[in-house]
Nucleic acid binder design. Structure first.
Lengths: 139, 139
DNA sequence: CGGTATCCCTAAGGATACTG
DNA sequence: CAGTATCCTTAGGGATACCG
């Protein structure tokens, strides 16, 4: 199977790679949130839209289509009046949701540090600029 | 503290939230790859650019600035001729890199399934469209 | 080498109106 | 309710040229 390289790291670093493409579809503004929401349970379209605050109908629809196409989300149409459509994570979707939720939670737990870092950074740029290092290199 | 809701989940779902903003800066096309690369070790600008295949100078620079601002990456300027700039993950950056690498690896391990899912999806849309469910609802 | 500045293009995204 | 379709704006991103 490992017929191409050392392989300890994923080949995401190559430009024409599927993983990169999939990752990109997974890390759009709304797909992360949609997955995180669906990890909590199934949602109907408008309920999901309410949960993922700020998403437009168009973008939610588009995002869900992308996730469905990639096999992360399943879409179940109930033939009722009015129509109901239930969205839920597939098994594959749940596997992806793990890392995604983990990332979201880690980010959430780092908010204070990031805010502080931004403040420091922005302060540095408006004030003077100190030299960080003075070590010469031989190369 | 929990004056707004149940709160068991992060507040990423609210539109004007820091976590969402940070997450967005973290899930751009190149920041994920940059973090994954830097998780392997320190890199100088052009080395990193070679590692993250396909990124332009401008976008790498911009991405790194964003990551530095948020405190994920530290930038060390060596005052040499020619100049050297070393990029590395901060502690915070390493904490974030965990989930990120996890996601990348999970994606990498799911490529086959996603490819299959896409094939199925695309085939369905070009062919006929079967009804998925017929259960009526009472609500 | 390690960038910034500029220009330009494409894709992501929002608002609204409309349909099954 | 659950979307499409349309239109338009903004942000992401590539190429190139140039500077410290």
């Amino acid at each position: 199977m490992t017929d191409q390289a050392t392989f300890r790291e994923p080949d995401v670093f190559e430009r024409k790679c599927m993983s990169r493409d999939i990752l990109h579809g997974l890390t759009t503004r709304w797909s992360v949130l949609a997955i995180a929401a669906l990890a909590e349970g199934d949602f109907r379209f408008n309920a999901l839209r309410r949960r993922v605050d700020g998403v437009s109908e168009r973008m939610l629809s588009q995002t869900l289509q992308g996730l469905e196409r990639d096999g992360f989300v399943s879409r179940t149409v109930l033939q009722t009046i009015p129509p109901r459509v239930e969205y839920s994570l597939t098994d594959l979707g749940h596997r992806l949701a793990g890392p995604v939720l983990n990332l979201v939670e880690t980010v959430h737990g780092s908010v204070d540090e990031v805010v502080a870092a931004r403040a420091r950074y922005d302060a540095d740029r408006s004030g003077d600029r100190q030299s960080v290092d003075g070590v010469p290199a031989s190369d």
